[in-house]
Lab assay of single mutants.
Amino acid sequence: MEVRTIKVFTTVDNINLHTQVVDMSMTYGQQFGPTYLDGADVTKIKPHNSHEGKTFYVLPNDDTLRVEAFEYYHTTDPSFLGRYMSALNHTKKWKYPQVNGLTSIKWADNNCYLATALLTLQQIELKFNPPALQDAYYRARAGEAANFCALILAYCNKTVGELGDVRETMSYLFQHANLDSCKRVLNVVCKTCGQQQTTLKGVEAVMYMGTLSYEQFKKGVQIPCTCGKQATKYLVQQESPFVMMSAPPAQYELKHGTFTCASEYTGNYQCGHYKHITSKETLYCIDGALLTKSSEYKGPITDVFYKENSYTTTIK
């Protein structure tokens, strides 16, 4: 009895394709271990004539594949690729409408935090270190965002349907971005203890939790000093293409032309909904596939993004 075979390709990165001759009487799992086709788990399936010449994702289970996976995804987590594939199996079914010149995501599976993050990423200057993220990001900007969303979920250790947080998501993504040249110098002034300067680099240099107003941050924000008295913390120097200011959701007025974009969060910790506000020729609110415009805006804002380049204080 002759062994019926077909020729397929296996890959971990969709760049390096490895030619395989597979036995049609055995499952993919018996031949390769966990195997995925377009995100779908085909591990328990036997090869079919229609699979001839198709590319299958496999887990990096030998040295060659491990090197290829690390170079593309910059992670050695053995569960990463499987999590990416199972997320992709959902995100490829989502709709990605162009809204006001940006790629958004039609609401499904509690994905409003991903839509808000995706919209924000198209408006701030950011370059990702893992080629996987950078490639998928370019495709997302062009309207094909399924891979990018699935990668975000995998890097953030999230599953489809789980509630997510924009600030946490951005923080994970910033860790995989090139923020080497970003720098922030802060000064804390206390009447009792004097003053202390701190220099922050990388992710810490672009994120701040405690106030939404970048102007206020430049002037000074009140913080408790270690001595128990009130101290003032203010920005001395900022070198970065953008800054992200966050605070627990509270009524906040966004003035046209003073910011790049913002995240609105309605609801409580267990259950809520994100919308995205962007400042173009007027203010726009993007909620999944829905767009509304207004000249002014007041609502429960939790993150505001500002364009920056270089700032030095005039406070002496």
Rank of each mutant, 00 (worst) to 15 (best):
Ile105Thr: 04
Thr116Trp: 05
Gln230Tyr: 15
Asn49Thr: 13
Asn129Gly: 09
Leu37Ala: 11
Ser25Phe: 13
Leu254Ser: 00
Lys219Cys: 09
Thr226Tyr: 11
Lys183Pro: 01
Ala142Thr: 15
Tyr28Lys: 05
Glu308Val: 12
Ala177Arg: 01
Cys190Thr: 00
Gly53Asp: 11
Tyr155His: 02
Thr43Met: 09
Leu102Met: 11
Thr55Asn: 09
Tyr57Leu: 09
Gly299Ala: 08
Ala154Pro: 04
Asp63Tyr: 07
Pro131Phe: 02
Thr10Asp: 02
Leu179Pro: 04
Gly164Phe: 00
Cys261Gly: 00
Lys106Cys: 07
Trp107Ser: 06
Gln195Thr: 14
Met244Asp: 01
Phe174Pro: 02
Lys219Asn: 12
Thr55Met: 08
Ile152Glu: 00
Glu204Phe: 05
Tyr113Arg: 08
Tyr28Gln: 05
Val21Ile: 13
Leu283Phe: 11
Thr258Arg: 09
Phe242Tyr: 00
Lys307Gln: 08
Leu290Thr: 15
Val189Glu: 13
Ala132Thr: 04
Glu168Gln: 15
Gly194Ala: 02
Tyr172His: 11
Trp107Asn: 04
Cys149Glu: 04
Lys201Arg: 15
Phe305Arg: 00
Val12Leu: 06
Tyr96Gly: 06
Glu168Lys: 09
Met26Tyr: 11
Val22Glu: 05
Asn268Gln: 14
Gly272Thr: 02
Ile15Asn: 10
Ser295His: 13
Ile277Ala: 01
Thr282Cys: 07
Ile286Asn: 00
Ala69Met: 15
Ser295Arg: 13
Thr292Ser: 11
Leu59Glu: 15
Lys201Leu: 11
His18Ser: 07
Ser86Arg: 13
Ile45Asp: 15
Ala108Gln: 09
Ala247His: 08
Leu153Ala: 02
Ala140Phe: 09
Gln196Val: 10
Lys298Thr: 10
Cys190Ile: 02
Tyr137Arg: 03
Ala154Leu: 02
Gly202Val: 01
Leu119Asn: 02
Pro97Asn: 07
Gly272Ser: 00
Gly29Tyr: 09
Ala231Lys: 03
Phe128Met: 05
Thr260His: 08
Lys218Ala: 05
Ala145Cys: 08
Gly39Ile: 07
Ile6Cys: 14
Gly210Tyr: 02
Tyr265Gln: 02
Tyr84Gly: 04
Thr5Asn: 14
Ala289Asn: 12
Asn147Thr: 12
Met170Gln: 02
Ala87Ile: 07
Leu114Val: 10
Gln230Lys: 12
Ala108Phe: 05
Arg167Lys: 08
Leu114His: 03
Asn147His: 14
Gln134Thr: 10
Pro131Asp: 01
Glu253Ser: 12
Thr211Pro: 03
Tyr57Pro: 05
Asp23Arg: 12
Glu52Leu: 11
Ala145Tyr: 04
Tyr214Met: 14
Thr159Ala: 15
Asp77Cys: 12
His18Asp: 07
Thr232Gln: 08
Met26His: 13
Thr278Gly: 08
Leu235Gly: 02
Gly161Thr: 01
Met244Val: 00
Ala205Gly: 01
Pro248Tyr: 15
Glu71Val: 05
Ser213Asp: 14
Val12Pro: 07
Met85Cys: 06
Ala145Thr: 04
Ser25Ile: 10
Ser104Thr: 12
Ile301Cys: 00
Lys293Ile: 09
Thr278Phe: 11
Pro78Asp: 15
Tyr138Gln: 15
Leu151Val: 05
Gly82Ile: 13
Leu186Glu: 14
Val166Arg: 01
Gln237Thr: 13
Lys54Phe: 13
His74Ile: 07
Leu121Arg: 06
Pro241Arg: 06
Val22Ser: 08
Thr192Trp: 07
Ala177Met: 03
Asn178Glu: 11
Val304Gly: 00
Val203Ile: 15
Tyr96Ala: 05
Ser181Ile: 05
Gly220Arg: 02
Gly228His: 02
Val99Trp: 12
Glu204His: 12
Pro97Cys: 13
Gly164Cys: 04
Lys54Gln: 13
Val188Asn: 04
Tyr234Val: 09
Lys93Gln: 10
Asn157Glu: 08
Gly267Val: 08
Gly53His: 12
Cys193Pro: 04
Thr159Tyr: 12
Asp287Val: 00
Lys233Trp: 07
Thr43Pro: 06
Lys280Phe: 11
Glu125Trp: 06
Asp38Arg: 09
Lys293Thr: 14
Arg167Cys: 03
Cys193Ala: 04
Tyr73Glu: 02
Phe70His: 09
Thr91Asp: 03
Tyr73Phe: 10
Ser104Tyr: 00
Gln98Tyr: 11
Ile286Gly: 02
Val304Asp: 00
Leu173Pro: 01
Leu291Tyr: 15
Ser294Asn: 10
Thr302Asn: 02
Tyr269Arg: 15
Ala136Trp: 07
Thr91Trp: 04
Gly33Ile: 04
Val243Asp: 01
Lys275Asn: 04
Gln197Pro: 07
Leu186Gly: 03
Ala87Asp: 02
Val206Gln: 03
Gln270Asn: 15
Gln134Gly: 06
Lys293Arg: 14
Thr312Pro: 09
Glu68Met: 06
Glu296Ala: 15
Lys316Leu: 15
Tyr72Pro: 05
Tyr113Gly: 03
Gln31Val: 15
Tyr113Gln: 01
Cys190Arg: 04
Thr159Ser: 15
Thr313Arg: 13
Lys127Gln: 15
Ser279Trp: 04
Glu52Pro: 08
Gly228Asp: 01
Asn49Met: 12
Asn157Ser: 07
Tyr284Ser: 10
His51Asp: 13
Glu162Cys: 01
Pro34Lys: 14
Thr76Cys: 15
Val160Met: 05
Ser246Thr: 00
Asp135Trp: 08
Lys106Pro: 05
Glu264Phe: 02
Thr292Asp: 08
Val189Pro: 04
Lys44Tyr: 12
Leu235Ile: 10
Glu281Asp: 13
Thr292Ala: 10
Ser240Tyr: 03
Tyr214Ile: 11
His256Pro: 15
Val3Cys: 11
Ala289Arg: 04
Thr64Met: 13
Ala154Arg: 03
Thr159Ile: 08
Thr258Met: 10
Tyr72Gly: 06
Tyr297Glu: 00
Ser294Tyr: 14
Gln230Trp: 14
Phe128Asp: 05
Gln134Trp: 03
Lys44Gly: 14
Ser50Glu: 15
Thr64Cys: 15
Thr19Arg: 11
Asp165Thr: 01
Tyr138Ser: 14
Glu215Ile: 02
Asn110Ala: 06
Tyr96Val: 04
Ser213Ile: 02
Lys233Pro: 00
Tyr311Arg: 09
Ala136Ile: 03
Tyr208Asn: 07
Ser171Trp: 15
Tyr73His: 03
Thr282Met: 12
Asp303His: 02
Gly299Ile: 03
Cys261His: 00
Gly161His: 04
Thr64Ser: 12
Thr169Trp: 00
Thr103Cys: 08
Tyr36Trp: 15
Asn178Asp: 12
Cys261Ile: 06
Asp287Lys: 01
Tyr137Trp: 07
Cys271Gly: 15
Thr266Cys: 07
Arg66Phe: 13
Met26Asp: 12
Arg141Ser: 10
Val21Arg: 13
Asp165Cys: 15
Pro300Glu: 11
Glu281Ile: 03
Val189Phe: 08
Leu212Arg: 06
Gln195Lys: 13
Lys275His: 00
Leu118Ile: 09
Tyr73Asn: 04
Asn100Asp: 10
Ser50Leu: 13
Asp38Ser: 09
Ala140Asn: 02
Thr35Lys: 04
Thr266Met: 12
Pro131Val: 04
Val67Asn: 15
Val166Asp: 04
Ser294Val: 15
Ala115Thr: 12
Glu264Met: 12
Asn14Ser: 13
Phe32Arg: 08
Glu168Ser: 13
Ala205Trp: 00
Gly272Ile: 00
Gln30Thr: 13
Met244Pro: 01
Ser240Phe: 00
Pro241Thr: 09
Thr55Gln: 09
Pro249Leu: 02
Ala146Lys: 01
Cys227Ile: 02
Lys201Glu: 10
Lys233His: 10
Tyr252Leu: 08
Val304Gln: 00
Glu204Pro: 12
Asn100Gln: 14
Met207Ser: 05
Thr11Gly: 08
Tyr269Leu: 15
Glu125Gln: 08
Phe217Cys: 05
Gln216Glu: 12
Thr5Ser: 12
Thr313Tyr: 14
Tyr138Cys: 14
Ser25Val: 11
Arg66Leu: 12
Glu296Gly: 11
Ser50Asn: 14
Thr169Asn: 02
Thr199Ile: 13
Leu88Glu: 06
Val185Ile: 12
Gln238Asn: 02
Glu144Gly: 07
Pro224Lys: 14
Met85His: 09
Arg66Ile: 11
Val42Asp: 05
Gln196His: 13
Gly29Ser: 09
Cys225Leu: 01
Tyr306Ser: 00
Lys44Cys: 15
Ala205Ser: 08
Thr226Val: 14
Ile105Glu: 02
Leu65Asn: 08
Glu264Lys: 00
Ala150Asp: 02
Ala132Ile: 04
Tyr297His: 07
Leu235Asp: 00
Met245Cys: 12
Phe148Tyr: 03
